[in-house]
Design a protein around this nucleic acid. Sequence first.
DNA 1: CAAGGTATCTTTACGCCGCTAAGATAGAGA
DNA 2: TCTCTATCTTAGCGGCGTAAAGATACCTTG
Lengths: 211, 211
Amino acid sequence: MRETQPAEARPYHHGDLSRALIDAARRLLEAEGPSALSLRAVAREAGVSPAAPYHHFKDKGELLEAVAGEGWDMLDQAIAKAKAQAPSIERALNEIGVAYVCFARDNPALYRVMYDTARDREALPGDMATIDKDSAYCKVRDTLIEAGGADPKDPIDIELATTAAWCSAHGLAEMSGFKQFEHLKEAMGGEEAFFRAIFQHMGLGALRTKK
Amino acid sequence: MRETQPAEARPYHHGDLSRALIDAARRLLEAEGPSALSLRAVAREAGVSPAAPYHHFKDKGELLEAVAGEGWDMLDQAIAKAKAQAPSIERALNEIGVAYVCFARDNPALYRVMYDTARDREALPGDMATIDKDSAYCKVRDTLIEAGGADPKDPIDIELATTAAWCSAHGLAEMSGFKQFEHLKEAMGGEEAFFRAIFQHMGLGALRTKK
DNA sequence: CAAGGTATCTTTACGCCGCTAAGATAGAGA
DNA sequence: TCTCTATCTTAGCGGCGTAAAGATACCTTG
């Protein structure tokens, strides 16, 4: 009486319940929003008892961290793809920025969880948890150097420029859903055009070409 | 048996309980953080029963909106002061930005509530709730125009430039508390110097003077 | 000044939450 | 086959947001 599905690699009673819980959490997250994401609801969605998750995650926060981790991975990939597809190194930063904001727009609840857990982790005694594991932040930094947006010989300048770009993109990402900007989006002829225009004003447009 | 304090204008049983609740909420907020701000805890802090707040606020959200409203007022004042004290119009925008981020740094929980309620309000059918009631956003916009940061004849350009500046400042404000930046703050010789350096990279430094 | 009305606050209760402890179960290793 | 142990369930604690109903004290009207 315990074989609802074709049984593919289920070592114990349920079989990779942590995976199922993370998936259930992400399903609920985008369907109902972050406020509806209770541990009990996740367990319900996954078809287990309310206490089952505690055998795989220390507490609710640890599950959210796992969800957020997958979010960072997705963001990494989106940024890598944007950089790879950029027509020129001068425009790469702009494409990365647009990809970043589009990711936040397309996964608003996940994006929120990502930064919420990051903030909570910050509160803990400082382990070396970088904003992103490695790749996204580094890609922005390298792109900035390659495109001449930072002095390659000045490590402080590099970090400042990267941080400035990241903060700008994050600010736009957080506010991109606000209703006040509807008319601006229309005036610019679409959401992405709006994003690009904002990045231009932030000094994150094409770098060497259009000074 | 109901006069714990000198009785200054207490029309009904308690006397301006809404005021007392908002104050209690703000006290709890900065003392314990946003996650500890339950309606019951606020009532406890104010010395009333858990159901008492419902005679003054429709629900928890409405109390948070009141708290957030006071936050926006405080931010208005901080920005007005920063603009008034700026040594020149070219540097006014930079001073406003620093004041903005310092406000968020000094009132992290309040700042969070401000944007959380703003986001929630966004979800509602679009009433004309601007980001800020009036003044802060307008001051940034006017400063941008006066300092030559936007084409005064192009209303779209003005709004884009203002939005870009606001988003940049918000992004930095949100991340200003992250631990990763400790060494950058030290390298720059202080937190405010760090903020200014980031604003420089965002194109929000002194405007006409240092291109 | 007395009577009634009403705004304010309390008590009680419901269902949900995060989390813990104790018991049942079923796969793994002897 | 027997035991061990990881996994999951049941039961329960205190706290949460909120609604309904009762008590209280001020305000108004006669």
